[in-house]
């Protein structure tokens, strides 16, 4: 057994490596010189004011948005490289969206089965079994034949998480998974995410749920105007945030 080197990553870095990433929408620079590294099993919470580039930072990692400067590698594979098979790379990264984005025209179980069958080539039975396992895990096995619109927001988001997990991803990205939910449904989703983190899943989570960050995160990234202005351990972040903007931001969201 090779004990000298982590099995993930080929360049000695973490599972997700961003180096000096820059991205523009036309003239407008959304990401500036963003560098960070996420190791296997890390949970990183990203926060920052609206429009600071949090969603964009998440989307460049699995190539949903192209970037113009710097490099990103996921599990040793260069995301920006033209020769990279992006579909294959994406199938290894689960993604959960603010608005759930379940497919409205097919049932819950079909939502979870679809990519297993089309991307991973699983047989119908195998995909169904895996889907039921995951539905049970998020507590929704009795909802399998319903359509997304028949579920509450919290239930839909749990299904969306199950759909991502069905691909057996090695990392999960979350973009404000609870901010479209009614307050009473936030915890059911955070509980599922907490469990996932405790199981050792590598996670990047855009969220303003500071309670969740305090409980679960290893690190916190604070973004402002396209820059990563804080990237430190949770204790440092909540103990002694250095930047004024981060301090101001924190005091705003912690008081309510």
């Amino acid at each position: 057994m090779n004990e000298t080197k982590d099995t993930t990553g080929t360049d000695g870095g973490g599972m997700i490596e961003m180096n000096h990433v820059g991205k523009w929408y036309g003239e407008f620079q959304v990401l500036s010189n963003c560098s960070t590294s996420v190791n296997k099993g890390d949970v990183v919470v990203i926060c920052g004011p609206s429009g600071s580039g949090k969603s964009t930072l998440i989307k460049v990692i699995n190539g949903l948005e192209p970037f113009q400067e710097g490099t990103i590698t996921f599990n040793g594979v260069s995301v920006g490289d033209r020769t990279t098979n992006l579909s294959k790379l994406r199938s290894q990264i689960g993604m959960v969206f603010q608005n759930f984005e379940l497919f409205p025209h097919i049932s819950i179980i079909e939502n979870i089965k679809l990519a297993q069958m089309k991307v991973l080539g699983r047989e119908d039975d195998e995909a169904r079994n895996r889907s039921m396992e995951l539905l049970e895990r998020v507590g929704l096995s009795d909802q399998r034949d319903k359509f997304p619109a028949q579920l509450s927001g919290g239930q839909q988001q749990r299904v969306a998480i199950a759909r991502g997990l069905a691909m057996d991803p090695i990392a999960m990205l979350f973009d404000e998974p609870t901010s479209a939910l009614d307050p009473e449904m936030i915890n059911e989703v955070l509980d599922v995410m907490t469990e996932l983190a405790n199981d050792g899943m590598t996670m990047m989570v855009v969220s303003h749920e500071m309670g969740f960050a305090k409980r679960v995160a290893d690190r916190v990234i604070f973004m402002d105007e396209g820059y990563i202005v804080e990237d430190c351990s949770k204790d440092d972040f909540f103990g002694t945030p250095r930047g004024d903007r981060a301090q101001l931001f924190l005091s705003k969201i912690l008081t309510h």
Binding site: S87, R90, Q92, M95, F97, E101, V119
Partner: peptide, 15 residues
């Protein structure tokens, strides 16, 4: 069709 739907499909690895 909302762009988020296409993103969700892409993110799952669909071509």
């Amino acid at each position: 069709v909302r762009v988020g739907q296409a993103h969700a499909g892409q993110a799952l690895g669909l071509t």
